[in-house]
């Protein structure tokens, strides 16, 4: 997070560098917001009169819906902008696009962008709150926060727990945010995947690097599977999808070696039969849909802390 005027936390750019207190405050607030979503009238007036823009320079359905619904349930006015329907295709720079958004006097802009650091560029140039909804291969902080909220629901305190992340950790913004956040909360992170996607250098981020999924499955409290898309990977990053599924896919046989109460997570969208088998995705250990509903509460909490009047000065700090 970066600080704006008066020491108030202005933006949510990533989990790198956030303190345990900051993370815990966000998660606690999100837990409280869940009950709003259980009511018959699922709306609170917290952000009435405020304007929240979702500016997505990369395709996304669920993250954008989640943010928009979260803003609406806080009574904010929402506006959505996406690159495919905008002028960026004509070569306008990000800052020029943002200057046009700025002229509409938004209070917060939710940004998804294919370039790492794009939200940071906006946060540096504009007074409004920037929330990173995924930047390049850098971070996806709200996804990791909702993952941690889901883990906390089942495991309580995450101190000393072991979370396995399996797949293309090197190029995953979900994995990167989880690595930073989970370690701050005292959890141990183990990653597994092909040598191209889990290079030994990842150990410098504090994680344990393994190359066989069975090594991490057995002692994990949580197994987080990442989406693999061969067509989106660089040259020679993997062999075949079949070999990937055989070496790193999570199926029932593998899951039997895990702790009976292990949580199976996935940021979605899932590739059934590739990184996760249908039986596991739909099975009793899967909390994939809980992640989605927690995402809504988490994003409401975050906007409340960053924008709400009660939040104010050191709300998220």
């Amino acid at each position: 997070m970066t600080e704006g005027n008066r020491g108030r936390v202005k933006d949510m750019l990533g989990l790198r560098g956030l303190s345990r207190e900051q993370l815990t405050r966000i998660l606690d607030t999100a837990a409280n917001f869940r009950q709003v979503n259980e009511r018959r009238i699922k709306k609170v007036p917290t952000l009435r009169g405020r304007t929240v823009v979702t500016a997505f320079f990369e395709n996304s359905t669920r993250t954008r819906l989640s943010f928009e619904l979260a803003a609406k349930r806080l009574s904010a006015d929402t506006l959505s902008f996406s690159a495919s329907t905008s002028s960026t295709a004509k070569g306008e720079t990000l800052l020029d696009t943002a200057r046009n958004l700025d002229a509409m006097r938004p209070d917060a802009v939710i940004v998804r962008h294919p370039a790492s650091g794009a939200p940071h560029l906006l946060a540096r140039h504009f007074p409004w709150t920037v929330i990173n909804a995924g930047d390049g291969i850098n971070e996806h902080p709200t996804q990791a926060l909702l993952d941690m909220l889901t883990m906390r629901d089942h495991l309580g305190d995450l101190e000393g727990r072991t979370v396995a992340i399996v797949g293309d950790v090197l190029h995953s913004r979900v994995a990167r945010s989880n690595i930073f956040g989970l370690q701050t909360l005292g959890a141990k992170v183990e990653v597994a995947g092909p040598g191209t996607m889990c290079p030994p250098a990842l150990a410098e981020l504090g994680v344990t690097v393994r190359h066989r999924i069975d090594e991490v499955v057995e002692r994990a409290d949580v197994i987080m599977m990442l989406r693999i898309q061969r067509e989106r990977l660089g040259k020679a990053m993997m062999s075949t999808t079949q070999e990937y599924a055989a070496l790193y896919g999570l199926d029932e046989a593998r899951l039997r070696r895990a702790r009976p109460e292990v949580l199976v997570m996935h940021p979605g969208p899932i590739n059934r039969g590739v990184e996760i088998s249908p039986e596991v995705a739909d099975g009793p250990n899967s909390v994939i849909l809980e992640q989605v509903s927690n995402g809504l509460a988490l994003r409401m909490a975050l906007m409340y802390l960053l924008l709400g009047d009660e939040g104010g000065s050191d709300a998220a700090a």
């Binding site: 790492s116 291969i137 850098n138 990167r176 990842l202």
Partner: peptide, 17 residues
């Protein structure tokens, strides 16, 4: 090819190729 900074702990940490 795709690298935009030195490959090492910093590039891993800031998520740049």
């Amino acid at each position: 090819q795709e690298g935009v900074m030195h490959e090492g702990v910093v590039s891993l940490s800031v998520g740049l190729r």
